[in-house]
Amino acid sequence: MPYHDLNVPFVDDSVELSRTIAFLAELDYDVVAINHTISGPIPLTIRGCCFEIAYAAATQPPSASDAQNTSASDAHRNLISNATALLRALRYRGIVISSGARTALAARAPADVINLAASVWGLGAERAYEALVREAGEYLRREEARRGVYRGTIGVVDGGERPVVVEEEESREGKKGKGKGRGGKNENGKREVEALGEGGEALSKRELKRRRKVEMQVKAQADKAGKEGESQEKTSKNGKDGLEEAARKPEEIQGKASKDTVKK
C-alpha cells in the first residue's frame, strides 16, 4: 500500500526542496504532494473533507535564532493539544497525517509517524496507518473524481476538439522566422522556399504576405458573421459551412474547458 505525504510546503529554495523530496523518497513515501496554494478564504461548506494534522512542529529542529528553544517546545505542546482535540471532535475518523516539512530534517519515516500518532496523540496504530495510507489515498481519488468526472460516472478525457490547422501553421511560420537566426536559408545558403504557387513556381515573401493578409481578412469577416448570429448564417449563402461551424463551436469550447480543468 502506498504511503502518502500530502503536505510538503513549497519553499523558495530548490536545493532544500529537492533534498526534502529525495529524503522522503528514501523514507519510503510513495505519494508526495507539494503544497503551493495557501491563500484564499476557507469555503463555507466543508463537507466530505479530510482534516489534516502536520507533525512538523514535533520534529522540526529549533532554529538558530531560537536560542532558548521555547517556541519549538511551545509549538510541540500546541500540536499535541490541537491534535488530540481534533481527533476527539472527529471521533478519530477522516484524518490525514502529513509532514508539513519545510526542511528535510522535519520529515520522518511512515512507521515513525504512525508510532508518534499512536503513542503521543492517542490515535490507535491501526487508525494512524489508515490516516497515512487509506484516508489520504481516498482523499486524492475523491478530489480527482470531483474535477474530471461528470456526475460520478463519466470521465471527460478529451473534449473531442478538432485541430485548428490554420492557426497552428501560422504560429509555426512565425517561430521559424524569428528563431535560430538562420535567416530561413537551406544548406546551399539559398533562401528556403516557403510555399509553391499553383504553377509550382516559388512564391516570393511579398506574395506570401499579401496572400496571408487576404486570408486573415476573410477569416475575420467570417468570425464576425459567426458572432452576429447563427440563425442568420443558416439562411445565408454558405449555410452549410455555417451549420458545421455552429455544431463545432460548442464542442471546441467544451474541449478547451475540460483541458483547462485538467491543467489545473
Binding site: 520534529t59 522540526q60 529542529p61 529549533p62 530534517l105 520522518r108 508510532n115
Partner: peptide
C-alpha cells in the same frame, strides 16, 4: 516516540539528525 522527536545528537557531537526506527 522520543527517538522520533529527537532532532539533534547530544553535546559533544551536536549535529542535526533524523532518527529512524
Amino acid at each position: 516516540a522520543a527517538l522520533t522527536c529527537t532532532t539533534s545528537l547530544p553535546a559533544p557531537v551536536r549535529g542535526s539528525v533524523v532518527v529512524r526506527v
